[in-house]
Design a binder for these strands. Structure first.
Lengths: 235, 235
DNA sequence: CAACTTAATGAACTCAATTCATTATTCCGC
DNA sequence: GCGGAATAATGAATTGAGTTCATTAAGTTG
């Protein structure tokens, strides 16, 4: 009982600080264990609080997860626009958006899984702040497409919404195995492949098939990577 | 207590029949309530068994769901090949595959949601029979693409896997809101749109070559971006 | 009809989320 | 400084679900 490293009883923090501590602990536990396996008792222990005290600040376990993801999302999207602003050209900008998403999945698989499988599926997701943030996030992609259409580079007879669904749906399916812990993937390569497929389509539209259009594509992808490098040096 | 419609005690069925009754009840309850909200007590009640008896036939709640979905999947895929065999041409066959998937989601949203959100996400999904059935299911799509490539109709420089991810990912994202109970969609129209986008791509590849930037132009643009990059790295 | 096999019961158990009456700490006006 | 309001924190109790198991009942077989 002489231990000083044990639970210091009666340590009282401001609401703000306590909330921050609980959310930090919760993020760690959720990340390690997933939603169902994450125990409030463990979160409480790591946050140095008693279990019941969490309910002063969060309605329930679910609410805690929502706030954790929300917090993560906000910091993640913070420098997004700035990075994007340095990249020019429809293809390169699309490439960046897709690559960025892939990179996020690659770096934070657990949190992404929580987002995909738990947050997004609950019936009140639409009223969440995360939903709104997510719409912002994907709206940029549609803006790029819209600009491409106005510039005459892209077809104007495709439902915009479907383009978004195709891109993000494709990313998600492509990363599914990785999220399940099976195998790995390379964000750069997958991004290139997806942009190529989305823009070019599967069919051969073939005036001259012997002329390799992919030379230009490969160069453009390379330039996109260079741009990314200057926008986000630690990629 | 004179009721004759109440639980008839001591009614004993063969293993087969009892399993069937429990699965029917489970499917109904899972469909109405989703996984978490579905109570074993309610399943037991509808199946006219006591709760504990379910554990004679199923390891746990999760196992029960797996078997329910498996059962549904099998009947669903039964007449698949036969239908497909009557359809000819790459585009039409792709269209059928996509439309069929959309139709399933449209008709059985709840079961699809269980499949997408619960089965597929659990860590041992890969060892499930449903996983194998699902691979069968999507393999047909890849066969169609492969045949299209061999016939020279489709590009041969696209990762097949990505095509599959794009198609099924797109379908899933497109139907997300519907699965959440928001709005509706038309399987016919969405299938047409998806096939069109997947085959044709987003870019305009005009017959009139003067309307699109040619390779030289695109290279010059790319180089211009590089120049911009080295001139003012944070423009 | 006796022995055996298997279906069914229902109460008990576990374990995690959640609630709440109570206690401790800090803040603030006098 | 000091008394009291506000609020952070406690820990024991409650709830509610899944799961287990010893026991009983029903059918089957020789």
């Amino acid at each position: 009982m002489a231990g000083t490293g044990t639970r210091r009883k009666g340590l009282r923090l401001s609401r703000e600080r306590r909330v921050a501590e609980i959310m930090a602990a919760a993020r760690a536990v959720f990340r390690e264990k997933g939603y169902d396996e994450a125990l409030l008792s463990e979160i409480a222990e790591r946050a140095q609080v008693v279990e019941g005290n969490i309910y002063r600040y969060f309605d329930n376990k679910r609410d805690l997860l929502v706030k954790v993801i929300e917090d993560w999302y906000e910091t993640m999207l913070a420098d997004y626009d700035q990075q994007l602003s340095r990249i020019h050209g429809t293809r390169a900008r699309l490439n960046f958006m897709i690559w960025r998403h892939l990179k996020t999945v690659h770096d934070e698989p657990s949190l992404c899984q929580l987002m995909f499988l738990h947050l997004r599926t609950w019936p009140d997701y639409s009223s969440t702040a995360v939903h709104e943030l997510n719409r912002e996030y994907t709206r940029r992609t549609l803006d790029i497409v819209r600009e491409g259409i106005e510039a005459g580079e892209l077809r104007d007879d495709v439902p915009l919404r479907l383009v978004r669904d195709m891109i993000y749906g494709c990313v998600e399916h492509r990363t599914w195995a990785y999220l399940r812990g099976e195998g790995d993937f390379d964000p750069d390569k997958v991004a290139d492949d997806i942009v190529d497929l989305v823009l070019g389509g599967l069919a051969r539209h073939g005036a001259r098939s012997e002329e390799r259009p992919d030379i230009a594509e490969r160069l453009e992808n390379a330039v996109a990577r260079l741009e990314r490098l200057s926008a986000h040096p630690d990629s």
